[in-house]
């Protein structure tokens, strides 16, 4: 059996010359995307924005407006170049990048969480109150599982935005995919091929995210007893046969 390693240097021509570097870059890109999305798990802030207490809501709103008001690149530059002068300590560049990504996309994610939680029908909460659920139980067993299903598709878009935003880390010399690509071009590799490979890898990664999130969405929908209509129709047709 022949196994083909897409990262090996023995691939023919330009591929062998460039792929090992691009694979290194892909790893860094994935690391920062995963780091950023872990940070961006925005559940607490999004829930804060639906709080009954005015102060809590205000804190959440300020965070969300502030980080949605500027782009990742600006925040990144500020964290990496400006903050060290102000506070006296320099962040490691990958850490600064992950922090900027997480805080920025987290603000967008909070908005998604807030919208999904508010979209849960009132009657669901009232029923939970009638059943004498505590506020925590109400959130955990009634509201969140239903809100989660609604959250998944917009979260999918956000994760793709996050993946694309990791390319900005190359501007502060993090050796991610975009950075490796530029380095290869500068050192004389065929730029058309290198950029085509870059685009292809990014697209592949965002496609993988979509596949993963579709799976998550189906599971989440099944757990609250909902199934996507198309699926159910397909299964009914199968059963009839």
């Amino acid at each position: 059996m022949i196994t083909i390693n897409p990262c090996s240097a023995e691939l023919p021509g330009v591929l062998g010359e460039t792929m090992p570097f691009l694979c290194d870059g892909t790893l860094i890109t994935l690391q920062s995307a995963i780091g950023g999305s872990v940070l961006a798990i925005a559940l607490p802030v999004g829930l804060m924005a639906t709080s009954r207490h005015r102060g809590v809501r205000a804190v959440a709103r300020v965070y969300m407006e502030f980080f949605r008001g500027t782009s990742v690149l600006v925040q990144l530059f500020w964290l990496f170049y400006a903050m060290p002068l102000l506070t006296g300590f320099q962040l490691d560049k990958i850490f600064a990048g992950v922090l900027a990504l997480g805080l920025n996309l987290g603000a967008y994610g909070s908005e998604v969480v807030r919208g999904a939680v508010r979209a849960v029908p009132r009657g669901q909460r009232e029923a939970a109150v009638a059943l004498n659920f505590s506020p925590f139980q109400r959130m955990r067993y009634v509201v969140l599982p239903q809100a989660f299903v609604e959250m998944v598709p917009p979260m999918n878009n956000l994760l793709i935005e996050l993946l694309k935003a990791t390319s900005l880390l190359s501007a502060i010399t993090v050796a991610d995919l975009a950075y490796e690509g530029r380095l290869l071009v500068n050192s004389g590799s065929d730029q058309l091929i290198v950029f085509a490979l870059l685009l292809a890898i990014y697209f592949l990664l965002s496609y993988l995210i979509t596949l993963l999130m579709r799976f998550v969405e189906r599971r989440a929908a099944r757990m609250v007893g909902r199934e996507r209509p198309r699926r159910r129709a397909a299964r009914a047709a199968e059963a009839a046969r």
Binding site: I160, L163, K164, A165, T166, S167, L168, S170, A171, A178, G181, R182, V185, Q191, L192, F195, L198, L199, Y202, F203, S206, Y207
Partner: peptide, 21 residues
């Protein structure tokens, strides 16, 4: 779909470095 799935930055690189070729 492809344009939406790839970063703006890389697309800018392509326009800036490859188009002159």
């Amino acid at each position: 779909e492809f344009i939406r799935g790839t970063p703006l930055l890389v697309q800018l690189f392509v326009l800036y470095y490859v188009m002159p070729d």
